[in-house]
Design a protein around this nucleic acid. Structure first.
Lengths: 198, 198
DNA sequence: CCCATAGTGTACCATTTGGTATAAAAAGGA
DNA sequence: TCCTTTTTATACCAAATGGTACACTATGGG
């Protein structure tokens, strides 16, 4: 029972379309005309619904983390560290080379070019990536406590290694690497001693 | 014996300063005022000496490949594949976290945000990264022929793996990872079976 | 039926973007 | 000395940027 003229577009759908534009073009590369055209709305509607460009981008990041990148949360539920990593790699490869997505990772490509004003956006993306890495690290710490990872292993180092692989794959995907190629990268990365079942 | 008013700035120095700006800000993030201020020259001087922004950027890439990223060429001269990779990682870590450089890699951060017009710049960077990967792949092919790498190994996969690690480290470095942390990533990556001396 | 409320569309704003026209200035050659 | 050549500095350009004022329109409540 809201009063006033009803919104003529779907919020979720518009957000998803904005997400795709940011994913493809990055924060600064996505212009207002790019966004409004893809979202099918005009500028004042965008500002009324989402605040401004930066606020829209933050909502997009939230959506990305909760949706497209949810493979991370799911992967952490696997019973062993080895399986966690296997699922992380598989999920990453699928996301990064998804035929219906722009190639690459929104969090990696979102903000590379940046002037000092958009620096807060860059920091937000760095924090977002760090959050993912932290979740993996904590999962490895648990694995270590459970004896699933050897006592002399470093959960922090392993988590950073996994994050590095995935971010590297994001760069590779953005450069045109195929799903098959990235799967082979993942296979090699899984040979790292501390992650193998022995 | 050049005729005409002599140039009041040093070409190499100006190019190096432009390189640093592009390195820090990316292609689109580096504005003409950013560049001219850092280079200590004014706009018409820049255009007379380098053509335009894109031409300047291409010269910068050339300089980067020949100078800052020359560790790649040097590393390929190592006697074994294992040592090649060790030197590649060491060189990458030093470059990516050099205290006098912007953190990260110019070729990775150069063009992430991009509209369709600057797409040629993005492709150039992708090609440049691919060239590095190809050089490593060819070195691994030689290693395989020499029996230094096992007969069932894939030089292409290994080269892509190494490139992925380095590009991932570039993202990590841009996000604030320390030299020490990246060295540990490299150490883990070196555990990959096909690269170990057996 | 009218009014308050909220969304839409157009047209605008100042600022910044990459790029240039133009004139003054500094050098060598005749 | 004067003339050609090249660089410098200022001032400008059209286009694009993120953001908004304002009039209009559609809804529900009284």
């Amino acid at each position: 029972m809201p009063v006033g003229r009803p919104r003529a577009f779907d919020l979720e759908q518009a957000l998803e379309r904005a997400l795709v534009v940011f994913w493809r073009r990055g924060y600064e590369g996505a212009s207002l005309p790019d966004l409004t055209k893809a979202m099918g709305i005009n500028r004042p509607s965008l500002y009324a619904a989402f605040g401004n460009k930066e606020a829209l981008f933050r909502k997009v990041i939230e959506r990305y983390a909760a949706g497209h990148a949810s493979y991370i949360r799911k992967a952490l539920k696997a019973p062993t560290a080895r399986q966690v990593v296997e699922r992380l790699f598989r999920g990453a490869v699928e996301l990064l080379t998804g035929p219906h997505n722009p190639p690459g990772c929104l969090l990696v490509h979102g903000a590379l070019a940046c002037n000092e004003e958009t620096d807060s956006v860059r920091r937000e993306l760095v924090a977002q990536r760090a959050a993912g890495e932290s979740a993996v690290r904590e999962r490895f710490q648990r694995a270590k406590a459970e004896g699933d990872l050897s006592a002399d292993s470093s959960p922090a180092d392993l988590a950073r290694f996994v994050a590095t692989i995935i971010q590297g794959m994001a760069v590779q995907a953005a450069g045109g690497a195929s799903r098959k190629e990235l799967r082979r990268v993942a296979k090699l990365a899984l040979q790292v001693d501390l992650l193998t079942d022995r």
